[in-house]
Design a protein around this nucleic acid. Sequence first.
DNA 1: CGGTGAGTTGACACCGGTCAAAGACCGTGG
DNA 2: CCACGGTCTTTGACCGGTGTCAACTCACCG
Lengths: 227, 227
Amino acid sequence: MTSRAQLLLSHAPVFQGASSADLRPLAALGVFRVLRRGEHLFRMGDPLETLFVVSSGSVRVYRLARGGTRELTLHVEGPRQLVAGLAAFQSQAMAPASAVALQTPTEVLCLPAAAVRERVFGTPALAGAVIAYFARRQAELLARMEGLVFSELGERLAAYLLEHAATGPYALPTNSELAALLGTVPELISRKLGEFYRLNLIHLERRTVRLSDPAELARLAGRNREG
Amino acid sequence: MTSRAQLLLSHAPVFQGASSADLRPLAALGVFRVLRRGEHLFRMGDPLETLFVVSSGSVRVYRLARGGTRELTLHVEGPRQLVAGLAAFQSQAMAPASAVALQTPTEVLCLPAAAVRERVFGTPALAGAVIAYFARRQAELLARMEGLVFSELGERLAAYLLEHAATGPYALPTNSELAALLGTVPELISRKLGEFYRLNLIHLERRTVRLSDPAELARLAGRNREG
DNA sequence: CGGTGAGTTGACACCGGTCAAAGACCGTGG
DNA sequence: CCACGGTCTTTGACCGGTGTCAACTCACCG
């Protein structure tokens, strides 16, 4: 029999390449949990002995900075993505970030970290898949870091728009959420969006955005990288 | 018998907790290599099928940004530290950064990535040690990222000085190297150091720094995080 | 003694953050 | 149906940090 949990795990990138025989015992340990928007899975500093795989909805992983006055969104994880991946693979780990549901409902599969560790470390195919996944994630984090440090807000926003609205109309999140993603404050998001609109780069209507001039946006987003 | 390579590996944090029996086959595959200052282990984008452990000297891992006009130093790895750790655990990985020797001589132990992967994935204790190491590294990277994005140059420089000169006089690297570490340009390093000097926070003589007022520096470094 | 590279310093522009006020949107409850 | 309150958005004014450019000094070294 193939349980819901196993179906989810077999499609999770973190276990890409693992056989279904390897995954079955893990899936058996899983418990589903449903969250409403705003409910936290955990907060920075909490002891973490559970690993989460998003089943539906989405989870925002973020850190507080500047004494709580600012926050930085590290990832927004959708279905099949892992939350708290790395931390759960250390024993007695403290959460290095907070995780909160973005949608109602958001369903996550909860797995006991100790058991998962034992299973993963004892199964070469799983260990390989997990480490490769973390390597990819770290590379993404690096790229993000570089963008935040070296590129200007306009570039970051253009890149964001290209990534999310390239294929069609896209409902923007609130300016606060965008600001947390792009490492700035809501006011500046508002200004830059307005600027893009006046330049006819995007079309905006009731928080729904369409790209009018993707080529120019791409130029803006990549300008400083190609030297 | 205990080879030099095995001695090095047994003290490397990445393999912390692994038994010497687990490490022996890995050590047998290692080849030492000596570099002069400025010699590259690899450059961003190179295919990477080797894993390096620093034996003596130090290696700077960095990324180019802004079309090559700026660079960001990710880590400076001293003895027993891993270089290219994560990348080597993916097959067919491209280096996400460049690595260059900082000192003459710098000696590194080179291990074939594929063989290391096989060994590590097949040995639960090793897999656990490696993942725990990556988890720590990712946490460090996160903290660094946050500092670069949210704190001002003065705070970052104060933190750097506290970290490196707390225990006694410390020979500063060049302003360019400091700038790459702290995510800025040499001119600003010069200004801030001068400012700290005029405020009697540090004592400077021929590029050697001593802390005159560590308490005040600590206040500067931490100001925006607390409260 | 000239050359090279690093460090220092000033002037200046600009981006980004802050504060405050006003406007738009959306639910609730009268 | 409309008034109301809260939240989010927009906009203006202003300030300070940071990056850039250029000139100059200094140490070191042939």
